[in-house]
Design a protein around this nucleic acid. Sequence first.
DNA 1: TGCACTTGGGCAACAGCGTTGCTTAAGTGC
DNA 2: GCACTTAAGCAACGCTGTTGCCCAAGTGCA
Lengths: 391, 391
Amino acid sequence: MTRDPDATGPDATDPGGTGTGPAGGGANLAVLRGHNAALVLDLLRTAGPDGISRLELADRTGLTPQAVSKITARLRAEGLADGAGRRASTGGKPRTVLRLVPGAARAVGVHLDRDGATVVLTDLAGTPLAVRRRSLDLTAGPGPVLAAVAAEVRALPSAGPARMLGAGVAMPGPLDHRRGVPGRVTGAPVWAGEPVRDALAARIGLPVTLDKDTNAAALGLALRPGAPRSFAYVHLGTGLGAGLVLGGVPLRGARTGAGELGHQTVQLDGPPCACGARGCLEVLCLAAVARGDLPGAARLLGTGAANLVRLLDADRILLGGRVVRGAPDVLAAGVRAVLAGLGLPVPVETVTAPHAVATGAAHLVLAPFFGLDGTAGGATLGPVGGPVGGE
Amino acid sequence: MTRDPDATGPDATDPGGTGTGPAGGGANLAVLRGHNAALVLDLLRTAGPDGISRLELADRTGLTPQAVSKITARLRAEGLADGAGRRASTGGKPRTVLRLVPGAARAVGVHLDRDGATVVLTDLAGTPLAVRRRSLDLTAGPGPVLAAVAAEVRALPSAGPARMLGAGVAMPGPLDHRRGVPGRVTGAPVWAGEPVRDALAARIGLPVTLDKDTNAAALGLALRPGAPRSFAYVHLGTGLGAGLVLGGVPLRGARTGAGELGHQTVQLDGPPCACGARGCLEVLCLAAVARGDLPGAARLLGTGAANLVRLLDADRILLGGRVVRGAPDVLAAGVRAVLAGLGLPVPVETVTAPHAVATGAAHLVLAPFFGLDGTAGGATLGPVGGPVGGE
DNA sequence: TGCACTTGGGCAACAGCGTTGCTTAAGTGC
DNA sequence: GCACTTAAGCAACGCTGTTGCCCAAGTGCA
């Protein structure tokens, strides 16, 4: 790998030498710089168009103002940040406001559903710039589907001077996020073991990240400004699943298997499920939906949500998916009622954004830029010392 | 705070200036050094008495051998590490083996149970050196109980030249781990709102960390050599709870409320529970234990474990607590049978160590030394770049 | 026994990080 | 118009891991 001495972004170098083997955890100066740059970028992103001042950045990061000045100078030189006027003076020189330049880079998000593909182009802030939708049959397998997806990606408006970071792909699980390989997808077992990530990367000439649809949606929601640190995104569509965000990072587990809310047993002697258990939440919930009993489905969803809140101490429940988009108020009210009845004061919201999964897929590519990999469970280097520093 | 130029431990300075406010995330050279030192210390700890060579440390951390030499030299100067012979030569100069010096520091672990307190003194590796047990009534409240605990701590063998790091306290939840304050403990509501951490710290003159008993036990298990990255510790005693370890770090949640396995609904129309719900796992499981139906309790536990495995993608299930210690084989077999029946090939083990919770409580103090705070969800500064570094 | 070779590890110089001390810029308020 | 306050940059600095080089300490073959 060549080394560009002018590059200062979080991805400028190959810190830690991850070329081969495990190579875990060791931090050198390049990692340090990348970490702080990503931290500042994340604060700029969260601040949105309003921007944020250097001193506020220093306060939020714990770095000295001078360090923030140096870091932001590098980011400005890279074109990732720029000034945006001044704040009102408080008796002295007014603060200069800094802002993320959303147009500095772009990303592609792909949502592979059972009956189609949604492809979205976003800027660095994750704002959708263009959306394309194409009907296709997932059971046709990787060959034709990926060819169609690649065509849609190429049909997106060209990036121009903006740097294209890559593409994130979200599809139904199970799959292996690390290797980028799907498992035995329900209803489309052709995909099992196919190297989807690498195959698509070769087709479109961009880095590709693969993840479950629920994880992608949860990641996109986790990166919204003001998002809670820990929440559960409950998705009710053709199936029932959840994306769990704990401490700002999606929980995937070693085999990307986390979030299987649908096969939680909630009725020991309930109806049998294809998974081998009885009384799975998904079976009960889908049955209620099928017979038109949305309040009943909401109550079941509420029980599942209560289990999540109690087990994970989640700050919020977000409801999404086709069924929820169809009747957001009924479902949210039902879930809220169950939680309130148990004395769990957790806010419940519905996600009605049209392309939440596809946008979230784009965030799979954007998140590492802001230090939010999530691959290994959080990239935050907290202040060391803990309770020992009492000397 | 005074600055000691000779100190090189992970807690040597106040990196990032955490004096006031949030001060999150920003990393300076002191943080960098502490991070790498903690990383190396953790590898030394995991290697145990066999030790580990410099080159292996370099390989595992991703640091250069020279950096490892500098870091280990500092650790040796601090008395935290030393040489332990040489490995067999592979054709050249044989590798020098380094080892953690367990006697370099000590910690105290306190397990506050409903009917007594267990106090354990451990070395830096977490090995118990002395154990004291005292019967007392938790409902008597913080005053008398903490006085008794302080007396037991003082009665422990003196540390001698070893540095005393502090004391970890484990007690039934709910409680606030960050502030060190218990909530409304079932059966002993006197403790609600009492500043237990600070009160005990003042009494014994040591830094104190407070956590739930299940979290402490899970932490102790997570720090055992060869422990899986993600597992659930299921504790069945007077109640039913769980300690969740995800990515090597205990999951606590914002309000230290995570792990409430006992109040997971598994039978929608089941018997009512004091928590307001019906069919809570704890109620069903304790009822089975009460009527002597241990296989039945094991099946229920297995259902709860299966829910955990599916929701969190856990690598292993560890069973502990008074009931499990009484009949480990019956319960483990029952849980294994349920998991196997669902096609979940997850190992199930029982924890029969006599003072697992008290030892785990000591690890609350030891863990930050090895970069395993867990307070903010993982202190690992992973290699930055992610999927973007494909240029 | 002696020599070439391989492998481990330390010394010294170095690039680059955030920090510190100081100066300059740019406002407010009397 | 002047003193004061606050923001931001310049320059020197301490300290990090890295690099290049040399020495130490083994094996293996002649």
